[in-house]
Simulated scan of single mutants.
Amino acid sequence: MDIFFLGTGAGIPAKLRNVTSIALKLLEERGSIWLFDAGEATQHQILHTSIKPRRIEKIFITHLHGDHIYGLPGLLASRSFQGGESEVIVYGPKGLKEYITTSLSVSQTYLKYPLKIVEIDEGVIFEDDQFIVDARLLDHGIPSYGYRIVEKDRPGTLLADKLVEAGVQPGPVFRKIKEGETVMLDDGTVIVPSDFLGPDQKGRIVTILGDTRFCESAIGLARDADLLIHEATFSKGEEKLAFDYFHSTTHQAAEVAKLAGSKQLCLTHISSRYDRQAWQELVVEAQEIFANTDIAEDFKEINIPNQ
Rank of each mutant, 00 (worst) to 15 (best):
V164G: 01
L158S: 11
K178Y: 10
D139Y: 11
D153Y: 04
V164N: 02
K176V: 04
G146Y: 02
K176Q: 15
A160N: 04
D153Q: 02
R175Y: 07
G156R: 07
E151N: 07
G156L: 03
V164Y: 00
R148C: 12
E179M: 09
A166K: 15
Q169H: 13
G171E: 10
H140I: 02
P170I: 10
G180W: 03
D161G: 14
K178F: 11
V164L: 08
G141N: 14
T157P: 03
T157D: 14
P143Y: 05
D139E: 15
E179K: 14
K162N: 12
L163D: 12
V168G: 09
I149D: 00
Y147F: 14
Q169L: 12
I149W: 01
V164P: 01
L163M: 08
I142S: 13
G180E: 10
V164W: 01
K176G: 07
P143W: 04
R148D: 05
G141L: 11
A166L: 06
G146A: 13
P172G: 03
V164R: 09
P143V: 10
L159C: 06
G171R: 06
K178H: 10
A166F: 07
Y145W: 05
L138T: 12
G146S: 12
P143D: 11
F174V: 10
I177C: 03
V168F: 04
Q169V: 14
G146F: 02
L159I: 10
K176I: 04
P155G: 08
K176F: 05
E151M: 07
Y145Q: 06
I142A: 12
L159P: 06
I177L: 07
V173I: 15
S144G: 11
L159H: 09
L163N: 08
K152A: 08
Y147K: 05
S144F: 01
L138G: 08
I149S: 02
R175S: 10
L163Q: 04
L163G: 11
E151Y: 02
G167I: 01
V173Q: 06
V150E: 12
P172V: 07
D153R: 04
D161P: 03
I177W: 01
E165C: 07
V164T: 14
K178I: 05
E165R: 14
L163F: 10
G146C: 12
K176N: 09
K152R: 11
T157V: 14
G171D: 13
V164A: 09
L158H: 10
D139A: 14
D153K: 05
E165D: 15
G171Q: 01
I142L: 12
I149A: 03
S144A: 14
E165V: 13
G171L: 08
K152E: 09
Y147W: 02
T157G: 00
L163P: 04
R154Q: 15
R175V: 12
Y145M: 07
K176W: 02
V164H: 01
P172Q: 09
G171H: 02
I142F: 06
E151K: 05
A160Y: 01
V150D: 01
E151Q: 15
E165L: 13
V173W: 02
V168P: 02
A166E: 15
H140P: 00
L163V: 09
A160R: 02
P172F: 04
P143C: 11
I149E: 00
V150G: 00
P172N: 09
L138W: 00
I142P: 06
E165M: 08
G141E: 13
P155N: 09
D139L: 06
H140G: 06
K176D: 14
V173H: 00
E151W: 00
H140A: 15
P172M: 03
